[in-house]
Design a protein around this nucleic acid. Structure first.
Lengths: 371, 371
DNA sequence: TTGTAAGCGTTATCAA
DNA sequence: TTGATAACGCTTACAA
């Protein structure tokens, strides 16, 4: 085993420990050498543990010279604070949770990464879990995180099981819903209005003259964002006297092959073929585009395609995808700001609106025209 | 503030707490109602805390009836164990760390997700951080995680700062290097042989008659996988009497636009244009492909392109990308198995080899032929 | 500015 | 099968 190590202690074993042979014997099996504790540091620096703690937590109120001595002892012993002990005593774990629907969607991964960077700055760790859009699973994960003592948590969307909100509130744990914005929401949120965004995208296609518009949407069960995007698109059509019949909306999980599959199903449906298809996110939209192209259609000549998110691929694929640019990094960084502020007792705005604007590229064109 | 809550306790305040007014006053500011503790549960069930602990940890050795009474008390109080206290007493946090180079590369995100699922099964939480391929940053993150009391950690690659290994070993924390396999490695690992894989991919192109082979590789600084893939490609060329001159290897971070950019630089280089380009991963390869296509070349007619990883896009884009299929989910799940086994004192193989095989698709063709 | 000591909520040893 | 009770390593009044 590569982790077997020598038991060189570097410092003499404190006398008070030498008599406690029993205690030493029951030490954790794989951890031969007990790590230095605050007490060891205090002893070596010739001060009390309280003083060491003060130095370590930069509470001021310490003599510069004392501080130096403590710092030296810390370095000499290779002292590493014990987070669990610290959490127990301070009732604060310096850990924040994030439950995301999926990690393998690059847009979410970028968000988590942004959050992690934000938290790193303030010295917080990030505990993650992915719920796969299953509310029950999300609840279980939130529960586990609460048990783990997270100080705050970032959630996606706002349709969580009531138990999630109840638990968080009962425990006094700060939380924030991301990817959604609703000025009237009862819960803190940071994001944009998905319905409005869907509306805008549909309006743009309508303005291009499209009348046969269809969607390969995300699976709406347990996913308010997917639901609201559809709602917005439907509203835009309705405002122009058009309809978005069920056969024009197929739901699929979020992946390229689901997008391809979705287009096939749309094309197999009744009535005239759609001239424009909106993907519930960029992955679906690009899947739609690839399927169309590979079955001999041109985009946007024969079919206009648009998505949501603006992942890197959207701008790079040919034709470049018209989509809604979602500022994930901002959303998650601001969510981090909010949570840290709440934990540290500072005031924070609990409804933050960001803009998700339309980015017109080459995958959409006037209806009827071939490009 | 949405988190203000009622202070209904559900159970009468135990007598021993009523005198401790001071203590109650200094409770955490945002957490009005102190959560039920083991002691509360014990009191309510009319047993000792030790017994409750035994029931909760399913250690057997408890009367069925006692167990039921405890379970009832737990439910009635909505008791949630306090992880920090548990960790302090048991010297085990039930949390595992993972530091990944980047989360926004879907292949890594899939790995983290697989690891998380594996750990969820065994009741472990996952703490993540992304190092952006910076060794110093990785060290800092490992340190932070160690302070947070992780029981084990998953790393990527095997070229870590010596301090990383030293710290982990000193603390007796189990770790494993993933994405790499070397039977002779001094550290536990789970993955495949990156050099061999590069060699195989180059061999395949050579067999197709390509002689002008170039690479848009990952940035090799702090990235042993990138280095070894290049090494393998160079070795394969050398074995056929060919050379891989510096001008034929450009290094780029891992993204689509870096791939595009890399191809431009290769084409600007001296000597004959390459007829085949290997991307350091699929993102780079697809970037190369998109750039080639958008500048009027056909793939694979004018240029063969191949990558590493086999992300979902590789199979779906046109032409579908020839690549090395990397079994990330398996790698990370097995890494999880290993870490959990080590933590729980069970034996585990600490060098696990997986196969990363070539998947031939449509982006590669014989040299000289137009498809 | 520093020290003393009482917790924090568990686990685990030992005795009953 | 259970109960007392001593850790676990740190923070934080309060006192000096």
């Amino acid at each position: 085993m590569a982790t077997v190590l020598s038991v060189d202690r570097g410092v003499p074993c404190p006398a008070w420990k030498q008599v406690l042979s029993k205690r030493l014997q029951k030490r954790t099996p794989r951890n031969d050498r007990p790590s230095a504790t605050l007490k060891d540091v205090a002893q070596r620096a010739g001060v009390s543990t309280a003083t060491v703690s003060r130095v370590l937590n930069a509470q001021g109120k310490v003599n510069r010279e004392t501080g130096t001595r403590v710092a030296e002892a810390v370095a000499a012993l290779g002292y590493v604070p014990h987070a669990a002990a610290r959490a127990l005593a301070s009732r604060r774990s310096r850990t924040i949770g994030a439950v995301t629907a999926a990690l393998d969607n690059p847009i979410f991964a970028r968000g988590i990464q942004a959050l992690e960077h934000r938290l790193e700055l303030s010295g917080y760790g990030l505990l993650v879990a992915s719920s796969n859009y299953e509310p029950e699973r999300e609840l279980k994960q939130v529960r586990t995180m609460v048990e783990r003592g997270i100080d705050a948590i970032m959630l996606q969307g706002d349709s969580h099981l009531p138990e999630v909100y109840a638990l968080l509130q009962r425990k006094g744990i700060a939380y924030i819903n991301t990817w959604v914005y609703d000025a009237a929401a009862t819960h803190p949120c940071c994001g944009f209005n998905n319905e409005l965004t869907g509306h805008n995208l549909a309006d743009y296609l309508l303005d291009l003259g499209h009348r046969e518009i269809a969607m390969v949407a995300g699976v709406t069960a347990g996913n308010d964002r997917a639901r609201n995007r559809i709602k917005g698109v439907a509203a835009a059509l309705r405002a122009r006297g058009l309809d978005l019949p069920p056969a024009r909306v197929v739901e699929r999980p979020y992946s390229l092959s689901d997008g391809r599959d979705g287009l096939r199903e749309l094309f197999a449906g009744p009535g005239p073929r759609p001239t424009a298809v909106i993907g519930g996110n960029d992955l679906l939209a690009i899947g739609v585009m690839l399927e169309a192209q590979q079955s001999g259609l041109t985009v946007p000549g024969d079919l206009s395609v648009a998505g949501f998110d603006d992942i890197e691929l959207a701008a790079n694929i040919a034709p470049a995808l018209t989509t809604i640019h979602v500022p994930v990094e901002e959303i998650c960084t601001l969510a981090g700001d909010y949570l840290v502020a709440r934990i540290e007792g500072r005031p924070a705005r609990d409804h933050v609106a960001l803009e998700a604007r339309l980015v017109v590229r080459q995958s959409t064109a006037r209806a009827g025209g071939r490009a």
